[in-house]
């Protein structure tokens, strides 16, 4: 199912939580929602899931507006809210039964069994939710989100507060679910977005500031080519001056004097790799390292959201 967010705006009193954003998520896509706290991620998710109404704009699920048929749309969405609220005094199986009845699922008993199996809650199914550890609670949260086999999954920080092992397990589960569903998930953990999602949306102060795959964001953000160059055979000052003479080189920084290691920044739009190699050949030097420096998602995130 396709999600289309069109000119969405949400105001809380004088505060603008979401400022006229539009984006589309296609069927089968896993989209990561990134942004600092208070950027509007949760608000956007609450609007898509029909918990709150937008001030302006609309969301279309497969072309159907959430303003027109909220109850029909709700049946196609599985939602794990931020902080994973649950009824602590209810046993896991009763809770899933309650949710399943609200969603009017056929063959509910069989479905509950499948879901419990899928999220790995078999041994805990008769325990009260309040007695479970955080990781298992998260599984219950996921179980209620997928019990009606929804085409769309909205997960608000699904791995927050879990230990590294649990994080890996939940990610694996989400990736598996994402094979057949449209998924939007929000997170603060940047490697997680790279690990799970197909596409990244970075949102800041209610606006979308970046949209693309992690690769495309990285190349977009890297304006000038940057290389780590290590050259042996010549004295550092000689190498440095020759490097500076090259037409394609913009700036040279010395990173380590002993090993003749430099960080070379090329001029905008140009690559100096070839020139550096030719220079080494002409001077009979050995090129021992020529590595492009890759921008990390962290840097891009900071660059886009710190202003």
């Amino acid at each position: 199912m396709r999600i289309e967010v069109r000119d969405l705006t949400k105001r809380y009193g004088p505060q603008l939580a979401v400022d006229n954003i539009s984006f589309t998520v296609d069927t089968g896509e896993i989209v990561g929602f990134l942004g600092p706290n208070g950027a509007g991620k949760t608000t956007t998710m609450k609007i898509i899931t029909n918990f709150i109404a937008p001030t302006f704009g609309d969301v279309f699920i497969n072309g159907i507006s959430i303003r027109e048929q909220p109850n029909e749309i709700k049946r196609h969405i599985g939602y794990l809210p931020e902080s994973n609220p649950l009824y602590n005094d209810m046993p896991v199986i009763d809770y899933l039964k309650f949710v399943g009845e609200l969603l009017d699922i056929n063959n509910l008993t069989g479905r509950i069994k499948d879901v419990i199996e899928k999220v790995g809650l078999y041994d805990e199914k008769h325990k009260k939710i309040g007695e479970l550890s955080k990781g298992y609670k998260q599984r219950v949260g996921l179980a209620q989100a997928i019990i009606h086999d929804p085409e769309i999954l909205i997960l608000d920080e699904p791995t927050s507060g879990l230990d590294p092992n649990q994080i890996v397990e939940i990610r694996k589960l989400i990736r598996e679910l994402g094979k057949e569903k449209t998924v939007i998930l929000s997170t603060h953990i940047l490697p997680e977005v790279e690990a799970i999602t197909d596409r990244i949306l970075i949102i800041n102060k209610g606006k979308i500031v970046a949209d693309g795959t992690s690769e495309s964001l990285k190349t977009q953000a890297t304006e000038n080519e940057s290389l780590i160059v290590e050259i042996e055979g010549g004295s550092p000052s000689e190498v440095l001056s020759k490097l500076n003479e090259l037409a394609t080189v913009g700036k040279v920084d010395i990173t380590s004097r002993e090993g003749n290691k430099f960080e070379v920044t090329s001029r905008p739009g140009l690559s100096s790799r070839k020139d550096i190699f030719t220079m080494c050949v002409n001077n009979n030097w050995f090129l021992t390292q020529l590595t492009p420096v890759e921008r990390k998602l962290e840097d891009i995130f900071r660059q886009l959201t710190l202003n």
């Binding site: 029909n50 049946r75 939602y79 609220p85 009824y87 602590n88 949710v99």
Partner: peptide, 14 residues
């Protein structure tokens, strides 16, 4: 206070 209202009202419940 527990936030479960969000769970309920995002199900087909008015």
């Amino acid at each position: 206070s527990s936030g479960t209202i969000e769970l309920l009202l995002t199900k087909p419940v008015t």
